[in-house]
Structures are given as structure tokens and as C-alpha cells.
Design a binder for these strands. Structure first.
Length: 565
RNA sequence: CGGAGUGUAGCGCAGCCUGGUAGCGCAUCUGCUUUGGGAGCAGAUGGUCGGGGGUUCAAAUCCCCCCGCUCCGACCA
């Protein structure tokens, strides 16, 4: 039994000034955690209990899926990271420290290298495959902007798992086993999380799902198809291309004066043409080399998609001087006559009678037919999908929702095993690189995501599976020996049944205790007071309900157990 | 890093424009009254006003530099 008067716990009437979103405010106000520094939080006893419950569920489901728990050091030799090149490519996002001999170390932001190194030393035969190993361990990332409490911190708790297989079929099996485990984990912790197709980012690999929790405060946009269930991160989502109007050729390109008109909106308005008849031309440096990209005037280029098109090469905007050299003045460039590889969005395939920049300040070209007048290398899916676009699977209209990522699965292939020489011998005695997958859950982020998704105006509403305790027992008259004796007996009996009890035994007025009980948000509230005893026992109610029932002491345990079921 | 804010008691804030001995609410401690949805009265504790420099007889207040934190854009669990 956890007693308030023996617990390091203070609730706050007002949220701290630096908290923006509801879960951050509630986690602080309810005394679940405190800030130690930017992006760094202390888990207080109640928050710690909820965190432990989540971790237990994660372990149970990982073990059930055949994964084995390990624990790797946070402090990792730089050598490992140099083997895969990520010592360079991770950039300033990774914390690096030196020991007294000036040897460099990394505070692990993730652990592909370390797990691959272990696989290299321990796995040598196909007979040892498949293997999935995991850990729950702190991760460190020097985030540019930590925010929203546990949602994005410099230090956070991650469950990371890595699978090692002999072939693609095995790797797929491991991938979907982890995927299924994640679905179960998020269900069990009471979180509505949806797997969506995702980009693979810096981790690499070729296939990925993110588990997203829908929340207005989410940092990611998710395109969701209400008709067929397709869902994808905005940075990766695809669309079914609609045929653009104005497909008829209208004579040769003609220079038109557009003084001072640069953006597509300006040009469209000035020429009295619809915006999707204007072509947006952009110059980007892909792996350091300039490339021209064309998208419809009202669309945004997705740099993520461009990067994937070029096999993960670095993509950046070209500076004005470069643009001027290879095309024309920024704001007036176009594809006609430029000597650059030109890639266009699929929506522009067959586009005719378009307006493009003339590569000359103050002028655009009208009546341009891309097929005829520009040397387009390829038409690809290059724009960021938005609300109202068509689902790539079924063609229905996509909607955008905000979401927070709580987990991600990647198929890595041999990216790390090949780089580090982690091989096994197959049945023929041939050395082959291990096929890998990696699977992360932001455990501390999950804790706060649960609160973000489950609260009301009065406070947190913990799902029973992860609540710090299941029952909040309020002793309203701590000076009344009869009340205390009854409450203590109930608390002990509940604990004997495996039900956690948090007792508010403070010498506070009833109103204070009710407010705090709502704020802390344990699933079942039991009131023990002189008035309740006079009415026949304890007053019992769910956090989510307004009215309580009075239950005789000998019936209370069953009533409570039923409510928790 | 770019843009916008902010920094005064444990928490939330006023004071700054117009310089003149640092204040309010909550929390904490003491006493009395109160006691079923954040009680009342009386008293008490607690501040190098983010740091440094400058202007001035005098700086929380005006000027300069630095730092922290928060919010909006590019990374990610």
C-alpha cells in the first residue's frame, strides 16, 4: 500500500508556465514527473510506477514473440560508429564524449552497431537463426528543440529490438512478428495506435511502419483513408494522380512579360490563369550535384521523396548563385533550354499549355508543353500529399490527422551486417551477411502519449493496465479510528488480491482530496469517511463516472475487482 | 540555426513604459475556528529581481554583452 504521507508527492494547482500540451501539464500537475533541465525529466514515484507497468507489458509481449532481453552499455566506443559511417552521418544529433585518454565515445542514440557487433561475435551458423534480441535502455539525442515534456527529450527510454535472419522470407517473418507484438503492446497499455507506412530516415533500410497515436498536438501529419484503411506518414504518403486540366497544346512557347511576379501565386493572378497551370521549378543539390525538379504550382516538393528517388542521397536547396548559374534568377526559372537533369511530378506527365519561368527576370513562357519543350528525365511521385488528394489504393479522398509516433519497425536488410562483416555460414558453408530488422518503442513517450489521449477537464484518466495504482483510497476522516480501521482493512485485503492501492491519508479537507484524486486519475476511487460508514460502507466509483455506489465493507473487494475487470 | 517571446520566493504572476529601501495569490510553518468538491482569520519563513558590464547620487526598471527556458520552421522513439 502506497501512502500519500510517506510518498514524495506534491500536486500543483496550476500548470507550469513552460508546458504547452495537456499531457505535459497533467504529468507535472499530478506529480508524475519534474523537469531537471531542458528535455530532461525526473520520474517521481507515481510516474515511475506507471512507467514500470508499461515496461512490464513490453517485456511480456517481446518475450511472447520470441525475443530475448539483453542490456547494452549506453556508452559506446566511437569505433563501432566509424565502421558503419554513422560517426560522420549522425552529425551533431549524437552526444560524443572523451575519456581521460582522449578516446571518443558515443552516448547511444540507438544501437544498431552494438547489436550487430554482438551478432557478429555470437552468430556464425544458419543453425542459430533466427534470433531477435532487445533491451530497454536510455537513449540520448541532442535534439535541436526538446519539447512537450517526455514527447521529445534529450534523454528518453527506448525499447529497441533487432532481428537477425538467414534470408528475406525469415526477415519478413520476424518483421511481422514484431509488428504483431507492437499491436498487442499498444492495445494492452490502452493506447489507440495505428500502424502507418513510413519513411526509413537515417536508420536506412527499405520498408517501415510507424505506430502513430492520433492527437491534435501530434508532430506528424498522417494521411488516412476513411474508405480502405490506407494510412501513411505525410512525408512518405503516395497519391493517385488526378488528370490535370488544360491538356491541349496551344502553339509554340511564347515569352510573356511578368514584371515583379515571382511566386506561382503571383504569376497565376497576374496572367489570370489557374494556379495548377503554372509549373513550379526548383533547383536542388542532390549529392552535391544540381538537379531541376518540376511540380504543379500549388504543390510542395517532398524532399524525402526526392531523396528516396536518389537512393538516400543528401538533398538540399541550391543557393541563389548556383541557381543563377545553371538556370536563371531565383523566382523566374524554368525547364526550357536548361542543361540539367529534370525530374517532374507525375501530375505533370503530358501537361501542355503550361506557364514556366523564362530564366530571365521579369518574363515567363506560356504555351509550354513539357514533353515537347523540356527534357524531362522522368515523371515521379515528388510532392507532399495533402488533404483532399486521392488514396493510392482505392482512390477515395484522403484526410489528414495529427499524430505522435510511439514506435517504428524497419526492415534493414544487410546495411549494418555488410558494413560490419556480420555473417553466418549457410548450409553450403558459404558466408552470407545477416538479414536484419530493427524495432523501437519510445517507452517514456508512450507514457505521456497515454495521458495525452486519456484525460478530461479534471485530470488524468489512467487505463487500469498502466495506472500507478489501481485504487485510490481516500480517508476523509483520518482522526476517526473506526474510519481508519475500516480503510486499512480494505486496503490490506485489496493488496492481498493483487490490487495496488494508493491511500490518501493526509490531514486535508475532503474537497482537496477529491480534486487530487481526479487529477491523479487512478481508475477506481474509494471513499472512506464517517458519512460513508453511516451510509453503510465505502463509496466506490470509477474515475470516468460521476456517481458512486455505497458498498458494505465485506462486499467492497468484489465490487472493486469487478470495476477493474 | 533562422524567426518570436520570456526570465522577479517552491509554483503562477504584478511592478519596468515614467529609476527612489521588492509586492500579490498559491504552497510551506505556527495558532485558533472550520471539516463531503481546492476553507477563514491572525502571524511567520522564504528573493544576490538569470549572469556580467555600463549610465546615474540612486537600477528589477535605462543601455550593451552573455546565458537559460518556451513557442513557430528542417531531425526523430
Amino acid at each position: 500500500m502506497l501512502r500519500w504521507t510517506e510518498t514524495l508527492l506534491n500536486t500543483l494547482r496550476e500548470p507550469p508556465q513552460d508546458a504547452e500540451i495537456v499531457s505535459h501539464k497533467l504529468m507535472i500537475r499530478a506529480g508524475m514527473m519534474r523537469k531537471l533541465g531542458g528535455g530532461l525529466y525526473v520520474y517521481l514515484p507515481l510516474g515511475m510506477r506507471a512507467l514500470r507497468k508499461i515496461e512490464t507489458i513490453v517485456r511480456e509481449e517481446m518475450d511472447r514473440a520470441g525475443a530475448q532481453e539483453t542490456l547494452f552499455p549506453i556508452l559506446q566506443p566511437a569505433e563501432l560508429w566509424k565502421q558503419t559511417g554513422r560517426w560522420e552521418t549522425m552529425g551533431p544529433g549524437m552526444f560524443r564524449v572523451k575519456d581521460r585518454k582522449d578516446a571518443w565515445y558515443v552516448l547511444a542514440p540507438t544501437a544498431e552497431e552494438a547489436f550487430t557487433a554482438l551478432a557478429k561475435s555470437e552468430i556464425s551458423s544458419y543453425r542459430q537463426l533466427p534470433r531477435i534480441i532487445y533491451q530497454l535502455q536510455d537513449k540520448f539525442r541532442d535534439e535541436i528543440r526538446p519539447r512537450f515534456g517526455l514527447i521529445r527529450g534529450k534523454e528518453f527510454i527506448m525499447k529497441d529490438a533487432y532481428s537477425f535472419d538467414a534470408d528475406d522470407a525469415g526477415a519478413d517473418k520476424s518483421y511481422w512478428a514484431m509488428h504483431a507484438a507492437y499491436v498487442r503492446i499498444f492495445e494492452r497499455v490502452g493506447l489507440k495506435a495505428k500502424p502507418v507506412e513510413a519513411d526509413t530516415g537515417d536508420i536506412g533500410g527499405n520498408f517501415s511502419h510507424e505506430f502513430m497515436v492520433f492527437a491534435a498536438s501530434g508532430e506528424d501529419g498522417i494521411l488516412d483513408c476513411p474508405a480502405c484503411g490506407y494510412a501513411a506518414n505525410q512525408e512518405r504518403a503516395e497519391r493517385r494522380v488526378q488528370v490535370v486540366p488544360y491538356q491541349t497544346e496551344a502553339g509554340a512557347p511564347e515569352e510573356v512579360a511578368t514584371p515583379g511576379q515571382h511566386s506561382c501565386e503571383e504569376v497565376a493572378r497576374f496572367l489570370g490563369r489557374p494556379i495548377d497551370q503554372i509549373v513550379k521549378s526548383l533547383v536542388l543539390l542532390v549529392g552535391g550535384k544540381p538537379v531541376m525538379v518540376l511540380v504543379p504550382g500549388d504543390r510542395e516538393l517532398s524532399e524525402t521523396k526526392l531523396r528516396r528517388l536518389f537512393g538516400g542521397a543528401k538533398v538540399e536547396e541550391a543557393d541563389e548563385a548556383t541557381v543563377a548559374k545553371v538556370a536563371g534568377p531565383v523566382g523566374s526559372i524554368g525547364p526550357v533550354g536548361v542543361e540539367l537533369p529534370i525530374y517532374a511530378d507525375r501530375a505533370l506527365e503530358g501537361a501542355a499549355d503550361m506557364v514556366v519561368g523564362a530564366n530571365k527576370e521579369g518574363f515567363h513562357l506560356a504555351h509550354v508543353s513539357l514533353a515537347r519543350d523540356a527534357k524531362v528525365v522522368a515523371y515521379e511521385d515528388l510532392v507532399t500529399v495533402r488533404e483532399g488528394d486521392c488514396c493510392p489504393k482505392c482512390g477515395a479522398t484522403l484526410t489528414v490527422r495529427r499524430g505522435t509516433e510511439v514506435g517504428q519497425c524497419f526492415k534493414l536488410g544487410t546495411k549494418y551486417s555488410a558494413a560490419m562483416g556480420a555473417t553466418y555460414l549457410d548450409e553450403q558453408g558459404v558466408a552470407k551477411p545477416l538479414i536484419m530488422g530493427c524495432y523501437g518503442i519510445g517507452v517514456s513517450r508512450t507514457l505521456q502519449a497515454i495521458v495525452e489521449q486519456s484525460n478530461d477537464a479534471d485530470g488524468i484518466i489512467w487505463p487500469a493496465s498502466v495506472a500507478p495504482c489501481q485504487v485510490n483510497l481516500l480517508i476523509l476522516d483520518p482522526d476517526n479510528a473506526e474510519v481508519v480501521a475500516q480503510a486499512e482493512a480494505l486496503g490490506k485485503a485489496l493488496e492481498a488480491r493483487g490490487i495496488d492501492v494508493f491511500v490518501d491519508d493526509r490531514a486535508e479537507r475532503p474537497g482537496v482530496k477529491f480534486k487530487d484524486a481526479d487529477l491523479i486519475g487512478l481508475p477506481v476511487r474509494v471513499v472512506a469517511g464517517a458519512k460513508s460508514l453511516a451510509k453503510g460502507g465505502f463509496e466506490i466509483r470509477r474515475r470516468t463516472e460521476r456517481d458512486s455506489v455505497v458498498v458494505a465493507p465485506d462486499k467492497a473487494i468484489e465490487t472493486i475487482a469487478d470495476l477493474l475487470r
